[in-house]
Each structure stands twice: as C-alpha cells, then as structure tokens.
Amino acid sequence: MPSSPIISVTSLSKTYASGYKALDNVNLEIQPGEIFALLGPNGAGKTTLINIICGIVNPTEGKVLASGHDVIKDYRQARSKIGLVPQELTTDMFEKVWHTVNFSRGIFGKAPNKSHIEKTLKQLSLWHKKDSRIMALSGGMKRRVMIAKALSHEPQILFLDEPTAGVDVELRRDMWDMVRELRKTGVTIILTTHYIEEAEEMADRIGVINKGKITLVEDKAVLMKRLGKKKLTLQLQNPLKDIPKSLASYELELSKNGTEISHVYDVQSEHTGIADLMNKLRNEKIEVKDLQTEQSSLEEIFVSLVHS
C-alpha cells in the first residue's frame, strides 16, 4: 500500500497583482523519502510553486498540504517540517556562520542544540569556518551555509531551489553526494534545476513544469525508457560511398567518410527493426566492425517536452 504523500498540491493557481498567471491548476504529490526534480525553463513557475508551499507567496486558489498539514490554516505545523534553500544567496553577509545557522534553528521554534548544529556544519564541511563572517566565504561555501541554515531545524522536507547554480563542477558533485546522504537520513528532497544532468544524476522522479502547468510527472527511469530514443552506430569494415537503396526505409546517416552508419530508433516500439537492418546489411555484404548504442539524454527529452 503506497504511503500518503508528504507534499500534496491540489488545484493550485497563482495570479500576481500584475495579472501574470504563474501557476495554473497545479496538482502534484511528492512521496516521503524521494528526491523529486522539478524541471522547467525560466519563468515556468518553479520558484512560485516552492514559495507557496513554504509560505512566502499566497496562493490565489488551491490547497497545499505538507506532512498532512494545510500550509495556510495549520502553518506552524506545516512550516516546521520544511527547510528551504533559496535560489539567491540571501543571508546577512556580516554575520558569522555559527550565529546565522543558530538563528535559523531558533526562528523555526527549536530549542538551541549545539551538537546538531555542529553535526550539520561538519557534514557540510563548514565546521572550520564556523567563526568566519559569511562575506569572507567563497560562493560554494556560502551555498553550503544556506543549506546548513535550512537543515538547522531538522526538517523532513528540503526544498533546493537551483542548488548548484553558479557552482563549479567539483562542488556540484560534492553537493549531489550531500543530497544523497541527506536522503539516507529520511529527508524528502525537492529540487528545481536548470541542469538536466543534475536531475538525471539524482532524482527518483521528475516533474516538468511549463507556463505554470505541470506537463509531466514520471519516474525518471520510466520517463527515459518511455520517451527515450536510442541511437545505433555501426562502424564499418570498408567505407561506403552511398547508402544502398534497399536500406533507404531506415533513414540511415552515413558519416566519417563512409565508415560509420547511424540509425535512431524508438525503444518503445514493438519492432525496432534492428534485426532486419542487420540482415539487410549482411545481404548487401556490408561488414560491421563494431557497434554501439546510445540512450537519448533527459535533456533531449526535456527540450522535446517543453517545445512540444
């Protein structure tokens, strides 16, 4: 029996005073303990959705439950379960790391707990910087401070809004490891990202939002299998001048001076035609030296969804 969702968004809409409709009848459920990636182009409504769940923006219509609590009527219970790492590095730059993280714990109504803050700072490799002013830290360190602040009150749900924006590759990989570690502790993680690689690397499920509407929510593996195309590349023993007429129906592409043939096919279709293609190549006396297949990336899937 599936567990009840930790986040439940029902018929959520948001129209700003300017008349701009940022969210349009959004329905979404996030399961406890999962990593959910919300993908969407700029202005799609990702941050508005997060801000409504966290209580920063008022919804125009609809209902949001966090851990079973209405985020408006029962805001104290709901918000105490949520940690938010915003997109921007917004913190008091003159404050020291230790103070700002303790402030976050206090404002979320938790009694001071030095050992938890120490553990969090150590987990994020910030312990040696605890007495440093935030303005003296690097961009990556500042981002870690934001995460430490969000984790200071031991939330069950963590929102990461563009967590690795402007972060170098090495640090990005560190962040991913950290997110995986957090998930092991039972924290549900919802991240928005522009980096498809990030979603592909970490998420269990993926939601795509575009123009304020959720256009797709799917298990990542299923999504890639369902929507993915595969590319078969054949390296030939002898170069070809042209594709033989008998193979015209396969829409093959000849490259690398005729030594390579590529064929894109749908992994979902009942007959991929690969076996027939190989037979016909043999009939045409075309010898294959090597072959490889390549699954289309999430990025290609995302682009096709957003522009469809």
């Binding site: 209580g55 219970q77 938010l84 008091d92 404002i107």
Partner: peptide, 18 residues
C-alpha cells in the same frame, strides 16, 4: 527593512512564526 532589502525576509516568512 534590511531583511526585505537583502532578501533574508524569506526565512522569516517561511518560518512557523505569527
């Protein structure tokens, strides 16, 4: 004003505080 100016008001608004 300073939290509004710097953006740190998000933390106050998202906290379980009346």
């Amino acid at each position: 004003y300073m939290p509004r100016f710097s953006g740190t008001i998000y933390e106050v608004l998202s906290a379980p505080i009346s």
